[in-house]
């Protein structure tokens, strides 16, 4: 479904992403992890159109999308969330999602957009009260809204910049379960970007680990978590997290 080949990005003289290649199959959940500054957000932004690649190719359903404007990428069927939720506070919760439903699918009727919006809100578990304001939402609620907006654009591929850092244990698990349920109910392919391993390992089919702009490991979670390079550059700094990851996978 998505084939990334030799993708690179330089900022001035600094290489943020260095010839990274990977593919994502239909219906898969791929975890994209790495410490801060490892290049995962840069890859994410190149796929979603926010950044133009310096080199390499991004093919989505066989067509090149590298360098396409963000709204065109969305219209092609790639939805994204932002790490820090960016809701439109002047619109109600429902209208936020209707907007995404209307423009995300390349403008059809407002009625269809509303139906798509209500479906998306159901999926993430937010009420579709037309008057509910964004300001009434907490951190977890905002993340749900962010997800609902992405889902309303009817994506075939969902780029979830989740970063569950701000959530507690219970909310993290809820969020992870939600992604799993979304895949089950809609069949959407998901790339989940995260900088902590934790819950992610429990949900994804496959993990790709980045460090300093390079891919250092790829494979099933249980396999990757035992990879010595991954443990060294990523988990090695925090053995407790490594242990926790191991026990969760087990």
């Amino acid at each position: 479904m998505l084939a990334v080949t030799d993708l690179s990005k330089q900022f001035g003289g600094f290489t943020a992403v260095d010839r990274v290649s990977f593919t994502v199959g239909k219906g898969e959940i791929l975890g994209l992890i790495g410490p801060n500054g490892s290049g995962k957000s840069t890859i994410f932004n190149m796929i979603s159109g926010t950044l133009t690649p310096s080199g390499g190719a991004i093919a989505f359903e066989g067509r090149e999308i590298g360098g396409l404007a963000p709204h065109r990428v969305t219209n092609r069927g790639i939805g994204r969330t932002f790490q820090i939720p960016r809701p439109f506070r002047r619109l109600s919760i429902l209208d936020n999602v209707i907007l995404a439903g209307f423009y995300g699918q390349g403008r059809h009727s407002k009625k269809a957009a509303q139906a798509a919006a209500e479906q998306a809100l159901d999926l993430v578990g937010l009420p579709h009260d037309p008057h509910a304001k964004v300001d009434g939402l907490g951190a977890a609620g905002l993340k749900k809204l962010e997800l609902a907006k992405a889902l309303a654009t009817a994506p075939k591929l969902l780029l979830a910049d989740e970063s569950l850092g701000g959530l507690d244990e219970h909310e993290m698990n809820q969020a992870a379960d939600m992604l799993k349920r979304i895949r089950r109910e809609t069949g959407i392919t998901i790339i989940w970007v995260e900088h902590i391993m934790g819950v992610l390992m429990r949900v994804v089919d496959r993990v790709m680990v980045l460090d300093h702009g390079e891919k250092i490991a790829e494979g099933p979670p249980s396999h990757v978590a035992r990879d010595p390079r991954v443990i060294e550059v990523y988990l090695g700094t925090d053995t407790q997290a490594a242990d926790a990851a191991q026990t969760r996978i087990a």
Binding site: H71, T74, F88, L91, L99, Y103, G106, K110, T153
Partner: peptide, 24 residues
Amino acid sequence: SMMRYALEAISEDEDAAAAAGVHV
């Protein structure tokens, strides 16, 4: 119109509007 939704969104956050599919 839906244009109002798009323009309200744009006035707050152009990137997020584009991510929702709006041709800003």
